[in-house]
Design a protein around this nucleic acid. Structure first.
Lengths: 203, 203
DNA sequence: ATAACGTTGACCGTAGCGGTCAACAGCGCA
DNA sequence: TGCGCTGTTGACCGCTACGGTCAACGTTAT
């Protein structure tokens, strides 16, 4: 009565989430299956039942995460935007939406890049290792920088906001505040910059 | 010929640096003495010779780090500054100077706060656990916000620059670029904001 | 009843952890 | 030249706890 039998897929998903989280923060070698199982609320044996062994679990997560991020981004990004701030806001909004639904996706993908364990590094296709560093282009490509006041370097503004979001993402492990607050604050910062860095005629 | 005998203190310092770095990124339990020794370029046995055991090494590092940060900050900070940006710039400059000489000091101190291993958490005086969160006050206390344009919230500006520096610090493990470049870019960002957020009469 | 499935606790072999210690290199001193 | 002394290490030890296995259990459907 306590609880009806959970569909296996629930457990699978729990393993995936816990796995990404643990692998991301500990690296391949120091990420223990027992830890993943505990965080997923299941037994260690079940992890092996679903994913065979540790290496295969890791590689499954790599593929899963890569596909997921790609498809989420493509599905949600609004490609019709041209304004610098509008584009950047869109990117961050989507990113935070992804972060909300898959809290450790991004940090896991980032961690893949730094992984150098001899057991899995050779089998990591380089294909997975690019993908990143596109955020900058995403925001800049095709956006017109003519709206900025003279003397304002758009690249510098981008730098500020990019580093800002980095600080936010990295700091979310502390879980000090909710997504809404965080995003609200980001929006405030952006409008502040927009109001003061754009020429008057574009406000 | 190869190399003259290094003064013991060199080795001690190497252990301290390696220790802070490894403890910071792995946490107490998963930080292995062998790893610390390897990164310090010495044998595992020497670590025990100098610091007794793992727990005592960790606690030594905690005390060392706390004292060092405090004294470096107090020694270098220019308390005569009053302007918002001047103060903030001073804080960041000192912080980066510390970061340069002790690359893992700050991340180690941060990590202490999150440590919850039952073996050492109880022995961690709460005294060490505050100390942080002072950066914000450091920059705001006693600085006049009257120079800002109306409608510009100084707290928001601080938020931007704080998150920015957070991103910088966290991202330095990638070691993409040197300190000078990083600091230069930070200065550029600050002057950009200052030029556009201050009333004209204060430029 | 029973077969099939999802799930687990107990177990195994072993890598590698914290910690110890005899021994060694190099240097000053006689 | 010999002789300690200091700084340093490789080899070693006991034991934890890791990755991985498996028989058995509870449920559910038939």
């Amino acid at each position: 009565m306590e609880q009806l039998s959970a569909v296996p897929d629930d457990k699978r998903q729990a393993i995936i989430n816990a796995g990404m989280s643990v692998f991301a923060s500990a690296g391949y070698k120091k990420a223990y299956i027992s830890e993943i199982a505990a965080r997923a609320g299941i037994s260690k044996a079940l992890v092996f039942h679903y994913f065979g062994n540790k290496k295969s679990l890791y590689l499954s997560l790599v593929e899963y995460a890569s596909n997921l991020l790609l498809q989420e981004m493509q599905a949600e990004l609004d490609t019709s935007l041209t304004d610098f701030f509008d584009k950047l806001q869109d990117v961050v909004k989507v990113q935070m939406s992804v972060l909300k639904r898959h809290p450790s996706l991004i940090s896991f993908i980032t961690s893949i890049y730094f992984e150098d364990d001899p057991e899995i590094k050779p089998t990591l296709h380089d294909a997975y290792l690019q993908g990143e560093s596109t955020r900058a282009q995403l925001a800049l490509d095709g956006s017109d920088s003519s709206k900025f006041k003279t003397g304002v370097d758009p690249k510098l503004v981008l730098e500020i906001l990019l580093k800002y979001t980095e600080g936010v993402v990295n700091n979310r492990m502390g879980a000090n505040q909710g997504f809404e607050e965080t995003y609200d604050k980001f929006e405030q910062c952006m409008t502040l910059l927009k109001n003061n860095l754009y020429k008057e005629e574009y406000l």
